[in-house]
Write a protein that binds this DNA or RNA. Sequence first.
DNA 1: TTGGTTGTACGAAAGTCTTAGTATTAAATG
DNA 2: CATTTAATACTAAGACTTTCGTACAACCAA
Lengths: 131, 131
Amino acid sequence: MRQKKKSEFLTEVELEFMTELWAIGQGTVRDVLDRLAPGRDLAYTSAATILRIMEQKEFVTSEKQGKTFIYHPALAKDAYQSKTLNDLSNKLFDGTPANMVARLVNDQDMSEQALEEIRALLDRRLTENDS
Amino acid sequence: MRQKKKSEFLTEVELEFMTELWAIGQGTVRDVLDRLAPGRDLAYTSAATILRIMEQKEFVTSEKQGKTFIYHPALAKDAYQSKTLNDLSNKLFDGTPANMVARLVNDQDMSEQALEEIRALLDRRLTENDS
DNA sequence: TTGGTTGTACGAAAGTCTTAGTATTAAATG
DNA sequence: CATTTAATACTAAGACTTTCGTACAACCAA
């Protein structure tokens, strides 16, 4: 017997849509569709289907205004970022987030300023814990 | 006309397999199968199929020894980690890897030691650049 | 030699994902 | 009111993923 699976993660296209919803806070099918990348040529009905499925999966909620649905993220971007990083850390970095940071800091070309900001963040974090 | 897609990313199960290949350097179907998590109950033929597909996708190469294939990763773990982080940064962190580190440092319950290691890493990185 | 063991090759079933068409309903406009 | 417009509901096709069974070949032991 096959499990329901119910992955708590967004698929590729769902993330694309959710990113726009996060950006605008809420929106209709039309709103989201209009914000997709220029080259992206997606039928209106496809977009509607995707949002309907996202509601089934409880990634968004909807509220009807007149005959139109307005969709809201049911999950904050922050929270989803954390969940995703946690998953990635477990699956590809031996469950050690520090490994992830190491790889990031070594590979991505982060500006010196970005690096310093992060260090400041760490300092703050470490002194908090010392209290 | 549909594109070939050829996603350069491993699927869930492929990552599971690749993780073991990375750990042991190389191995047969049996080697990998034996290393999977205890609860994981996968038929030998399934494992063989997965590795064969991974070879088609060029994630691994194989070399025949007697009647048995020995599989080798065609992609270093480091490189795959980088690729994955880069992709995630673009899709979920506005293309700003520093956002990713910030979220990690704020959310995950990293030990104080881990945090200090990361700070040390940053210090090293920053002084390098100063030279 | 003959049968059991171990391996590869192939095919297929079931599930999910992505996309879009058709049908229907509601709103707006002349 | 009649017709065009815009939205939702449903269905389905095609691709990919995951899993395993069947068929077949090679090897080894009694």
